[in-house]
Nucleic acid binder design. Structure first.
Length: 102
DNA sequence: GTGATGACGGAAT
DNA sequence: TATTCCGCCATCA
């Protein structure tokens, strides 16, 4: 049995975000025990296969919005999934009340 | 080994 | 409030 790698740990944390809530990259990095690794969380999610089933759409940046350009299909997909879970987008941003998945 | 990059964060302007 | 700039740290060329 080997120990969890950092990116496996990140998977666990992302998977632990309950539906209808969101977490920022920084929050996840902090939960993982690496407060300055927000960017690494992004890299890990980017490297995800399309069929992981991981709720990556619940991970947003500190500004409260998806970290994609608004014309990007990924942005629309993320927003669509979040809205399907009841997350309200106000002027392109997510209500602060939805923060704090942990 | 060195420099550039990034699904970021936070402070400074 | 909006932009800009720098820091952070694992990966890649």
């Amino acid at each position: 049995m080997r120990e969890l790698t950092l990116h496996e740990l990140i998977w666990q944390l992302v998977a632990a975000i309950p539906p209808g809530r969101v977490a920022t990259y920084g929050q996840i990095a902090r939960q993982a025990g690496y407060p300055r690794h927000a960017r690494y969380v992004g890299q890990t999610l980017k490297n995800l296969p399309a069929d992981t089933g991981l709720p990556w759409h619940r991970v947003i940046n500190a500004r409260g919005e998806p970290s994609f350009p608004k014309q990007s299909p990924a942005y629309r997909l993320q927003r669509e999934r979040l809205e399907a879970e009841g997350v309200v987008f106000l002027n392109g941003r997510i209500s602060l009340e939805r923060f704090g998945a942990f």
